[in-house]
């Protein structure tokens, strides 16, 4: 079985994330980036599925669409234990929205002849959580999304999804698109051996032309949404802080709630 993990390279959430002033797109070059933490759960799921298999020809490939530095995301996946990587990089991709990203990913997934495609629950920067459904739509594959627990049983993939109103069991048949939540597992850390082994693993770099896509189909010119204005949130003005040392904390709190009409 060919398992492909779609993994995104994102600006570090703990760094100072910003927008590029020239075109209001996310600044991916000027900020340190890394494999989206939420996609680590997808890598872990893929590795677990492979390890639980019959040891046959199952292989895990990491697929990333993004700028030069995004190769780091592929590398991290390989260090965790994936077998191979594909990095789609092309200047024309800059500024792509989710619709265009899903187009690039689905072309690459078709070329890879993926049986099981694993996604994270959402990227930590854009965070729309829509790319898996879009890819499923484009490839005409079933999608079981936001799994908190995943089992693969022959050709059947079954997940538990903890929704707002119910906990559901959802299943579909391979080939299929799967997305997993951060409840699904505990992603492993790369071992020293894993880090060394990753250096020898094959990584292919594909351009748009390799996917029979033209620059007009992706990137900023084809993005069907346009950011017209970006405003930094004004800093919150400093609040009142009291200590409870003398046991007056609760009274102060209730007084605050009362003054602000919350009672």
């Amino acid at each position: 079985m060919k398992i492909v993990v779609c993994a995104k390279f994102v600006p570090d959430a703990t760094a100072d994330r910003r927008f590029r002033s020239e075109d209001n797109t996310v600044d991916r070059a000027g900020v340190d980036g890394l494999l989206s933490e939420l996609d680590e759960y997808a890598v872990e799921t893929a590795l677990t599925v492979k390890e639980a298999g019959d040891g046959g020809d199952d292989a895990v490939t990491i697929l990333t669409v993004g700028p030069e530095q995004a190769a780091d995301a592929v590398k991290k996946g390989l260090q965790m234990g994936a077998d191979a990587g594909v990095h789609v990089v092309d200047d024309a991709i800059h500024g792509s929205d989710a619709v265009a990203t899903s187009l690039i990913l689905s072309k690459a997934l078709a070329k890879l002849e993926a049986d099981l495609v694993v996604f994270g629950m959402g990227s930590t920067d854009g965070g729309m959580g829509v790319v898996p459904a879009m890819v499923s739509e484009r490839l005409g594959l079933p999608a079981v999304t936001l799994g908190s627990e995943v089992t693969v049983d022959g050709q059947t993939v079954r997940i538990r999804r903890d929704g707002d109103t119910a906990s559901e069991t959802i299943e579909g048949t391979l080939p299929l698109v799967l997305s997993v939540s951060d409840q699904a597992n505990e992603p492993r850390y790369p071992s020293f051996k894993g880090i060394m082994a990753a250096k020898k693993k094959p990584v292919e770099t594909w351009s748009l032309a390799d996917l029979e896509l033209t620059p007009e189909q992706v990137g900023g010119s084809s993005a069907w949404t346009e950011v017209v204005e970006v405003t930094a949130r004004p800093p919150r003005s400093a609040g009142t802080i009291v200590t409870d040392e003398d046991g007056s904390g609760a009274a102060g709190l209730v007084e605050f709630l009362s003054t602000n009409k919350f009672l």
């Binding site: 919150r236 802080i241 409870d244 046991g247 904390g249 609760a250 209730v254 009362s258 009672l263």
Partner: peptide, 28 residues
């Protein structure tokens, strides 16, 4: 979290909240 607050209490929630609950219930 205190960087964000309009009002903050530095204290043990197990002490502060039950007292506050009592006081809110009384006032209501």
């Amino acid at each position: 979290i205190f960087e964000l607050v309009d009002f903050g209490v530095v204290g043990d929630l197990h002490k502060v909240l039950p007292t506050a609950t009592e006081e809110v219930t009384k006032r209501k």
